[in-house]
Simulated scan of single mutants.
Amino acid sequence: MKVLPFKSVSVFAFSALLLAGAHYASADDHDHDHSPAHNDHDHNSDIYAGYFEDNQIKDRPLADWEGDWQSVYPYLQDGTLDEVFKDKAEHGDKTAEEYKAYYDTGYQTDVERIVIDGSNVTFFANGDEMSGNYQYDGYEILNYEAGNRGVRFIFELEGEGTDDLPQYIQFSDHSIYPTDADHYRLYWGNDREALLDEVTNWPTYYPSELSGEEVVDEMLAH
C-alpha cells in the first residue's frame, strides 16, 4: 500500500491508499449490502447494486453532496461499528473480525470532516482545515469482476495558489443521476486516472449531525 497525501504533507497528513492496477476490481472491492438505498429518494435496487444501462447515467452537481460530513473511521476505531460487522458476518462469507479488518483498510483516513457549500469544499484533518473550489469534470464508469459496475462523479480544483489541495475529488454513492446523497465514499488525489484504480481505500462520510449509534442504524438499514 502506498500513502497518497496532498502535495504538502506538512499542512495535511491526508490518508489515501493507492492501488496500482486495472479498472477491474474484484468481487470484494465494494463489500456492501446491495439493497435499495435508505434515503428520501426512491433508488432502484438494480442501480444500487451496480446494474444499469449507460443511458441511465446523468451528470450530477456538487450540490448533491452539499452539507457537513463526518468520517466513519473513528467509529470503527472505537468499536461503535462492531455491531455492523457482526451483522455482516451473520449474512456474509467473513467473520466479524475479517469484516472489521476489511473496512479498516476501506475507511482509513485522516480527513475527519468535510464541509461542502456551493462549489467550495473544506477538508478538516489533524486540527487543520483547507478550502478550495471545485468544478464538475464528468464521470467515469468502472467495471467489476463480479459483473456489476460503479460510477465516479469527478470534480477538479479551480484557481491558483491552492497547491496543497487535491487536484481531483471523486464521489461514489451508488446513485447514477442527480439526487441528494445520504452518505458517500470519496477518493482524492492529483492524478485523475490513478484515482480510478483505487478500489481498496474508500473514506466514507455520513452527516455530521448523526451520532455513532445513528450511523450504525443507517448502515444496518442498508
Rank of each mutant, 00 (worst) to 15 (best):
M1Q: 10
K2D: 07
L4T: 13
F6A: 13
F6I: 12
F6G: 12
S8H: 11
S10V: 11
F12W: 00
S15N: 15
A20N: 11
G21Q: 11
A22H: 12
Y24P: 13
A25C: 13
S26K: 06
D29T: 14
H34E: 06
H43P: 09
S45Y: 11
A49M: 04
F52K: 08
F52C: 09
F52G: 04
I57V: 11
D59G: 03
A63Y: 06
W65Q: 10
D68A: 15
Q70E: 01
S71F: 08
S71G: 02
D78Q: 03
L81N: 06
E83H: 13
V84Y: 14
F85G: 05
F85A: 08
A89V: 15
E90T: 07
H91C: 10
G92F: 07
K94L: 05
D104Q: 14
D104A: 11
D110Q: 10
D117L: 12
G118I: 08
T122W: 00
D128C: 08
E129A: 10
S131V: 04
E140L: 13
N143D: 10
E145N: 15
E145C: 13
E145T: 15
A146D: 08
G147W: 06
R149C: 03
V151S: 02
R152N: 03
I154L: 05
L165S: 01
S172R: 11
P178L: 00
Y184P: 00
L186V: 03
W188H: 12
R192I: 02
R192K: 02
A194K: 09
A194H: 07
D197H: 11
E198D: 03
T200H: 06
T204P: 00
P207L: 08
E209G: 14
L210H: 13
E214K: 06
D217P: 07
E218F: 01
E218T: 11
M219T: 08
L220H: 02
A221V: 06
